[in-house]
Structures are given as C-alpha cells and as structure tokens.
C-alpha cells in the first residue's frame, strides 16, 4: 500500500516539470482528532500534460488540488509548481483554478468577469503581464457576442465557459479543475469535454482535472491518477495511450471501453 513515485516521461528534464510533489501529507484537526486527508503523495506532472484524477469521495482529490493552488498548507513534504513554491507560482499568476461552481460575480458582465484577474492582487505582489485579450478568450470558449450579458442570463454550461476563459487570461502554466462540469447534464458535459481538449491543445497549458466520472477521466487524460481513501493515497496511475484529437465516437471503441473497465475494477478496490 505504499505510494509509488511517478516517474516523469523519460525524456523530460527537471525544467519540464509543471508540478512536483514529494511525500506530501496533509492533516486536518477535527473534533474527532486529527484526520489524514493525504498521505505521502509523490507525483510529477510534465509541462503541458493533461492529468485526470479519479477516486471515491473523501480520497483527497480536491485537497490535492487545493495544496497545489496554495489554498491549503501541507503538513509535511514539498510542493513545487514550475520549480518554485506554490505561493510564488500563485502570485506569478502561473496557477489558475476552475471550481465546480462557476463563481462568477453576478453583478459583472461576462467580459468584466473574464478580466477580474487583471484587476486584483497587485497589492499582494501578483505579477500580471501580457494578458490574453478578453475578446480572444470569449471567441475561444464560443461566447462571442455575449460579452455584455450578466451571469444570470447564461445557462450553467455557458457560465462554466466564462469561468474557463477567466482562468486562462493570464497564460497560466497549470490549470486546476475541480469537477468543473459536475453540475451539468451529460450532453453539455460531453460537449465541454471536447471543447476543453481543443482549448488544451491550443494553449498548451498543463491541466489537473478532478472528476467522479470514469468516461470523463479516460476521455480527457493522458494519465489517470487514481486515489484511494482513508487516508488519501495514490492507488495507481493509468496511462491512457489513445491519440489526440479525441472525439466522442472514441467512447464506443473497444480500446476506450477496455481502459474504462480497468479503471472501474481498480476503483472498486479503492
């Protein structure tokens, strides 16, 4: 039940790592005593990689994303993002986060929501230079012409597109996504999966994507990190060696079904 260290791809040097976790343990104090959310996690993610994370509830998937985003402190071990501390990477706008809620400001128009990262943080040392034009991002997420709309005038899927555009405005090196399509219906989710792959290939950013859905994990990721619960630890890392660009028809292919079946088996023993 140890935690195997994940070797990065053979040809990748240390400079090419977007993320490196070494023996990361996160413990919370609760009313019932200390709770180990993550135990001795070691993980390397190549720059530009798409890694999906799958596991039962309470396995610490979200906790792992939050330690990378400097939202939670680690109890022991080290987190290094683009070769520096998570807090430094955060201030350099190299980390972006997309939540399950779109977390848009309801009083701001679509375009102003997308520009929010340019407006805040300088007082706390945020470095904001050469952002992507918001209009370009709007076109990328398929919302051209809706720049003046308020969030309540948009559907759930459209609001999540705005959140993705906002996350991309400062050219993040690493995009953390915590079940971003979990609240959407299946049709919208599929559609956004295809679009997310296109955006990933256009921007070349590294993506860590937490999901509860096995098909989603297989369809999106180059690798699937499977976590086990109590305490949260690495169970297995599965390579998904299916070529990109992937389209939805892939899901009916035997090679896809085979990998999904394998993940399901592993998940049952988590």
């Amino acid at each position: 039940m140890g935690a195997p260290a994940l070797a990065p791809a053979a040809n990748a040097g240390a400079d090419d790592l977007a993320l490196r976790l070494d023996g990361v343990t996160v413990t919370f104090e609760t009313d019932h005593g200390p709770l180990t959310a993550l135990q001795d996690i070691s993980l390397s993610v190549r720059s530009g990689e798409f890694l999906t994370m799958l596991g039962p509830s309470g396995c610490g998937k979200s906790t792992l994303l939050r330690t990378v985003a400097d939202l939670l402190p680690v109890s022991s071990g080290t987190v290094s993002v683009i070769g520096r501390a998570a807090s430094e990477a955060r201030r350099a706008r190299q980390i972006s986060f997309v939540f399950q809620d779109a977390t848009l400001m309801p009083w701001l128009s679509v375009i102003d929501n997308i520009r929010l990262p340019l407006e805040v943080g300088r007082g706390n040392g945020a470095i904001i230079d050469a952002p992507v034009p918001a209009e370009e991002l709007l076109a990328m997420v398929g919302l051209k012409g809706r720049e003046r709309a308020l969030p309540h005038e948009l559907s759930g899927g459209m609001r999540q597109r705005v959140a993705i555009a906002r996350a991309l405005i400062c050219h993040p090196k690493i995009l953390l996504m915590d079940e971003p399509f979990g609240a959407l219906d299946e049709i919208k989710r599929d559609q956004l999966n295809v679009e997310l792959l296109r955006i990933w290939q256009e921007t070349g950013t590294t993506i860590l994507f937490v999901t509860h859905s096995i098909p989603e994990a297989v369809f999106l990721g180059q690798r699937v990190l499977m976590l086990a619960a109590n305490p949260g630890r690495v169970r297995e890392v599965v390579d998904i060696d299916l070529p990109y660009p992937r389209d939805l028809a892939l899901r009916d292919q035997p090679e896809f079904i085979e990998r999904a079946a394998h993940l399901r088996q592993v998940l049952e023993t988590c």
């Binding site: 201030r91 980390i95 939540f99 400001m105 805040v120």
Partner: peptide, 22 residues
Amino acid sequence: NPATLELMHVLSASRWEVLIRV
C-alpha cells in the same frame, strides 16, 4: 460562496479587494 473566496485567494487578492469587489 466559499469557492468565490478561494478564487480571490488564488488571485492573491487582499482583504480590502475581497471587501470591495466581493
């Protein structure tokens, strides 16, 4: 929304900015 506060933290927003903008 707690997630909105997390967003502002990832954006390195100060308490003043959280007050004024959120």
